[in-house]
Nucleic acid binder design. Sequence first.
DNA 1: TAAGTATTTAAGCAAGTTCTAAAGTAATTG
DNA 2: CAATTACTTTAGAACTTGCTTAAATACTTA
Lengths: 108, 108
Amino acid sequence: MRCVGPTLSDKELRDLQDQYSFNPEIEERAEFYNLISNPIRLKIIHLLREKEAVCVCDLKDIFGVTAAAVSQHLAKLKAHRIAKSVKQGQTVFYSLTEHPFLSLIPLQ
Amino acid sequence: MRCVGPTLSDKELRDLQDQYSFNPEIEERAEFYNLISNPIRLKIIHLLREKEAVCVCDLKDIFGVTAAAVSQHLAKLKAHRIAKSVKQGQTVFYSLTEHPFLSLIPLQ
DNA sequence: TAAGTATTTAAGCAAGTTCTAAAGTAATTG
DNA sequence: CAATTACTTTAGAACTTGCTTAAATACTTA
């Protein structure tokens, strides 16, 4: 049942339902915002804009968390194709991709 | 203990620790991204850019959830000073504030 | 003023997030 | 080749999120 108060017309309501109830573009963007809503992941992105490529080992020292925690954050960034990795010996270097959504994050 | 592999110098590491281990600006931005990482809240923001002021009752019909759910999302937007409300009779109209972080969200 | 409408608040639950410790894999080195 | 280092994966605890239902509040109207 519709509300009675001074509200939208039936047509306006239908239009907004069509536009918003299912909207993959906005939903995809929300998912990206969720990815960068973690302070460590957002910091990793800023840091990789500055440093090009950094290993897990250094990231764990910078943020003061375990290597496991850093590795899990990097795996999420990688799963969203925001970061990529290159193995050099036993060291894994992470760097940013050219993902278009990265432009949603302003430079420092 | 520092890593042994081909990594950052001690000085680079200290500089990055200083810059990132505690960084309220980035942390505040991450918190905002968390706010807009929910698809309904992000859609409400886009919708209010289009419609100026909309009541809880219409939002519940647009998104197909209960009024309680919408009200809780709006309360979060309000707590972060992204939205404000005006009561007209028994109807509560919500609209956007001029919060600077809103510029982080591109127009449709 | 009783009933109905709009909204908020509270309680509770299921699902998701993020950390740690521990175990597993792979490369390096004494 | 055993030990060490770098990293990943797994499992589990603590916490957060987002919904629903139900109750509470506020306003309107018959």
